[in-house]
Computed example of a mutant assay.
Amino acid sequence: MRRAVVLFGVLVGVLGALLGFRILKDRRAAEGPPGGSGVVEGTVVDVRARLNARVMARHVEEGARVDKGALLVTLDCTEPEANLAETEARLAMARAQADAAKAAALAAGRSSEAVTSQAAGSQAQIASLADQQGLAKRQAERLRQMGGATTEAALDQAQAQAASLEQQLEAARHASTAATRQARAATEQVRSSEQQAEAAVRAIEAAEAMLRRARVSVAECELRAPMAGSVETLALEPGELALPGAVVARLVDTRRPKATFYLPNAELAAAHPGQPATVRADAYPDRTFAARVVTVAREAAFTPRNVQTRSDRDRLVYPIEVHIEAPDGLLLPGMPVDISLGAPEGAAVAEQRP
């Protein structure tokens, strides 16, 4: 019985000591600088496929460090390459058609100039024949008025010459009408040829746009790293089908780790962007890392429905994001850390220790 009482007393003493230690720890934490707990995060980028194609090869493994632009995965490019070749052929054909249309427009322009000149020449010929025909008619009339003073043969010759010039004048007028119509047709042909040449130029522009699109599709057959970082996951194996928008690889950049912790409403005034902070990680108990507050949320998280009492207001918490100054790869994503506002003691020395 006495032994049980002793054991009970020892147990009560141990529990009292633990409780006192916990209360002292909580009191010190309450009296210390504002802060909280968070998890280290890195900059995560998902590399997604834009094509519906099979994975041909993976050029890296999960966990590998890659530089920006490094080749990660190659997709089957048979169809995009065939489309690229077809587009290049269409562009060459469009350029040839444009050259032919330009040549046709040039030839139509020259033909129009020739026909226009011919029509102008016909008008000049009509004027000349009209003058000659008028002169011949007057000559025949004078001979007829002379009566016996002239021979009948001379009168017949003058009348025949006037009739011939009349026929030539009528033929010239018909030829001039035909030439004028040909000139109009040639002008329309020139306009049509110019429109065809313009359409051929637009066809070249459309083919060039299709060519750029085809080249983009071919470039998408090689998925490259958009930034330097670590390959966290490779979602597909060679032979598997990558769908448009599907995540093929995930990269994590740990060069600038960050973490988010929450401050209660009563301590929010102590936080502001640009403020120094101290980070401690369980993996490095003897080391502190300098950090800096980046954002202070303007809206509370975990807000009760009705904030009426002081205890309710104390339950309001605001997310605070900090960027941590740590060597690349030292603080890994997912590591739990404790964050407190204010610069660490001896931060300049602590940051240089290996």
Rank of each mutant, 00 (worst) to 15 (best):
L243A: 11
A185M: 14
G147M: 09
R3Q: 06
T278Y: 12
D156C: 12
A259W: 02
S192G: 14
I324L: 01
R305T: 00
Q168K: 07
E205P: 08
E237Y: 02
L135I: 01
A326H: 01
A82I: 03
R50W: 02
A172L: 13
L341R: 05
V294E: 12
A347K: 10
T180A: 15
Q145M: 14
A17L: 15
A175E: 03
A160N: 03
P333A: 03
A70Q: 03
E194F: 06
A100F: 12
E321Y: 08
M93G: 10
G229W: 00
S192Y: 04
R292K: 14
D338Y: 08
R191L: 08
A119V: 02
M210R: 15
D328V: 07
G147P: 10
V39L: 06
H59T: 01
R22G: 13
F8N: 07
Q132T: 02
E198K: 02
N265W: 00
G16T: 15
Y262P: 04
A183I: 04
A160H: 04
E232L: 05
F261Q: 07
V322Y: 11
L143Y: 06
Q125S: 09
V337L: 14
M146Y: 11
A85H: 09
V337G: 07
E86Y: 02
A281D: 10
A281H: 01
A235C: 07
H272E: 07
R250N: 02
R138H: 12
P336I: 05
Q168V: 09
F8C: 11
T74E: 13
A206D: 15
R310K: 05
R28F: 06
A183D: 04
A103N: 06
G36L: 03
R50N: 09
G38E: 05
E351T: 12
A162V: 05
T78L: 14
N52T: 14
V6W: 07
A225L: 06
N52C: 11
A348K: 12
A140H: 02
S111Y: 01
P226K: 07
K258A: 06
R144I: 10
L72S: 05
A203R: 13
R28L: 08
